[in-house]
């Protein structure tokens, strides 16, 4: 029970079907507050689909996706919220969300789940700084009086914009892109674009950050930098990170918890060390049946 107490995201019986294809099959796992959780598995295992369900881009065929803000005690209202048919329930000590009932932009705005994409999706024709300001859209929109006060040049908006720029500057400093703040995002090298996309997601003030293969295409040096960045996000901001990753070394180094998917089914769930030595995981990664693992391991000298 102690484990469930600081759960931030609870995925229960998540199933996603595309016609006849079951991309995610009855998947359940939890992400704890302040943890880095990794979702791994071979290509086509359904990892991105899980992300799309959590962030509201897909509506799951079945399952419940609960997320809490505030005190862990709000979980007690989960069943009542489910029965009520509402999207969220606001308590004095926190809010409970059912993500599968929310459209994508509300998952980001209200439940504060931010994400990046497997194929980077920056705004290439806008500057690096502008990318980070668009991420703070909702706060700035409010400060600009939904545009009315902003058009008239009210000082409250000017102040809000200045603080938004300061925040962007902080993040640019952190990811080492301050000098390129006024360059178009599409001009950045690949590794920098990946970091910028993470910074942009962080500028939305998330409680949960979902990263889809952030280390893909990075060289070892950039990959090490990325690890540091993710650890800093976890430790300084107490933000939970859910990570899809192919690179096992990244996963093993930084994650607190690993969930392994294969053909949409969860085959392992636990601490990195335990998962690493799991026969089913090795089999899935090597593409062989579970019984043969021992002999293959012997062959390759593991």
């Amino acid at each position: 029970m102690a484990e469930a107490i600081d759960t931030l995201l609870r995925v229960e019986h998540l199933t996603m079907r595309f016609g006849g294809l079951v991309a995610v099959d009855d998947l359940s796992f939890e992400v704890r507050q302040g943890h880095i959780a990794a979702l791994i598995g071979p290509n086509g295992a359904g990892k991105t689909t899980v992300f799309n369900c959590i962030t509201g881009f897909y509506k799951p065929s079945e399952g419940r996706l609960g997320l809490r803000h505030g005190k862990p005690a709000v979980w007690d209202a989960l069943d009542a919220l489910t029965d009520s048919g509402a999207r969220r329930r606001i308590h004095p000590n926190g809010t409970l969300f059912l993500l599968e009932r929310m459209p994508d932009y509300l998952v980001a705005r209200q439940a504060r789940v931010a994400r990046t994409f497997q194929n980077i999706r920056l705004f290439p024709g806008m500057t690096v700084l502008e990318n980070l300001l668009v991420a703070q859209h909702n706060r700035l929109m409010f400060a600009s009086g939904y545009t009315l006060l902003g058009v008239l040049g009210f000082p409250s908006y000017t102040r809000a914009e200045r603080s938004a720029i300061d925040k962007a500057r902080d993040w640019l400093n952190r990811i080492g892109l301050l000098a390129r703040a006024d360059d178009p995002a599409g001009d950045l090298p690949y590794g920098a674009q990946r970091r910028l996309e993470i910074a942009r997601a962080m500028c939305t003030d998330p409680v949960l950050l979902c990263l889809d293969e952030p280390a893909a295409g990075l060289n070892p040096h950039e990959s090490a930098e990325l690890n540091e960045l993710l650890l800093a996000i976890r430790d300084e901001f107490a933000i939970s990170v859910l990570l899809i990753e192919h690179d096992m070394t990244v996963v093993m180094e930084i994650s607190d918890h690993v969930v392994v998917l294969d053909y949409g089914v969860k085959i392992a769930d636990g601490a990195p060390d335990a998962v690493r030595n799991d026969d089913k995981v090795i089999a899935a990664y090597l593409g062989i049946a579970g019984e043969d693992v021992q002999s293959v391991e012997a062959e390759v000298g593991l």
């Binding site: 962030t55 881009f57 994508d104 932009y105 509300l106 980001a108 705005r109 931010a114 994400r115 994409f117 999706r121 920056l122 705004f123 290439p124 024709g125 806008m126 668009v134 991420a135 859209h137 909702n138 942009r200 997601a201 939305t204």
Partner: peptide, 11 residues
Amino acid sequence: EDEIACRSLGI
């Protein structure tokens, strides 16, 4: 520039 990215940012 990118509608999907906009939605992921809560717009």
